[in-house]
Computed example of a mutant assay.
Amino acid sequence: MNNIKALLYFPPFPDIFKRNIDSIMQKRTHNVINEFQKKYNFDILDLTYDKGFSDELFCDWSHLNAEGANLATEKINCYMDKIWGKSDCEKIDER
């Protein structure tokens, strides 16, 4: 094996999107993903409801603007560092 680690990422969304997510569909999706996770052993970073992403960080209903993209990148990098044992990123989590 090549010892490759995988990360499944759910991006953040603005409030209007989160208010309109079908909870049954979301639960089914997560159940399927959790089954795959058990089988293939990958990590999941779900920023869907991350409170650090206000509507001002989006350029439309689902796409981050430059500031939002930078924050998402920081959070992804920090998460990978934490789960794969490289560093501690408490400042990013506090946003």
Rank of each mutant, 00 (worst) to 15 (best):
residue 19 R to D: 06
residue 51 K to I: 09
residue 36 F to M: 06
residue 87 S to D: 14
residue 9 Y to G: 00
residue 90 E to V: 05
residue 62 S to T: 04
residue 89 C to T: 12
residue 14 P to Q: 12
residue 9 Y to W: 04
residue 66 A to M: 00
residue 45 L to R: 02
residue 61 W to K: 15
residue 7 L to Q: 03
residue 78 C to A: 14
residue 15 D to H: 07
residue 13 F to D: 01
residue 73 T to E: 13
residue 17 F to R: 08
residue 25 M to S: 12
residue 79 Y to H: 11
residue 77 N to L: 14
residue 31 N to A: 08
residue 1 M to A: 11
residue 1 M to G: 14
residue 62 S to E: 04
residue 76 I to M: 06
residue 47 L to E: 08
residue 10 F to W: 04
residue 18 K to Y: 05
residue 92 I to A: 12
residue 4 I to G: 04
residue 61 W to Y: 13
residue 89 C to F: 00
residue 13 F to Q: 11
residue 25 M to H: 12
residue 3 N to K: 04
residue 90 E to H: 08
residue 54 S to T: 15
residue 90 E to Q: 13
residue 55 D to I: 08
residue 69 A to N: 06
residue 1 M to W: 02
residue 16 I to S: 09
residue 11 P to T: 11
residue 19 R to M: 13
residue 59 C to T: 13
residue 89 C to G: 13
residue 21 I to A: 06
residue 47 L to Q: 12
residue 28 R to P: 01
residue 71 L to A: 04
residue 21 I to H: 09
residue 29 T to P: 01
residue 5 K to A: 12
residue 25 M to P: 01
residue 33 I to Q: 04
residue 26 Q to V: 01
residue 23 S to E: 08
residue 65 N to E: 01
residue 81 D to C: 11
residue 37 Q to E: 12
residue 37 Q to Y: 00
residue 16 I to F: 01
residue 20 N to W: 00
residue 49 Y to N: 15
residue 5 K to C: 10
residue 64 L to T: 11
residue 79 Y to Q: 00
residue 90 E to G: 13
residue 52 G to T: 00
residue 41 N to T: 09
residue 5 K to W: 01
residue 24 I to W: 03
residue 20 N to M: 08
residue 45 L to T: 06
residue 79 Y to M: 04
residue 1 M to T: 12
residue 55 D to Q: 05
residue 77 N to V: 11
residue 59 C to G: 04
residue 27 K to F: 03
residue 13 F to N: 13
residue 28 R to Q: 11
residue 4 I to L: 15
residue 71 L to D: 02
residue 36 F to S: 07
residue 38 K to D: 06
residue 53 F to M: 08
residue 68 G to Q: 01
residue 52 G to L: 10
residue 44 I to V: 15
residue 34 N to W: 03
residue 14 P to R: 06
residue 42 F to T: 01
residue 7 L to P: 13
residue 10 F to L: 09
residue 68 G to W: 04
residue 71 L to Y: 05
residue 69 A to H: 05
residue 50 D to G: 11
residue 88 D to S: 14
residue 6 A to R: 03
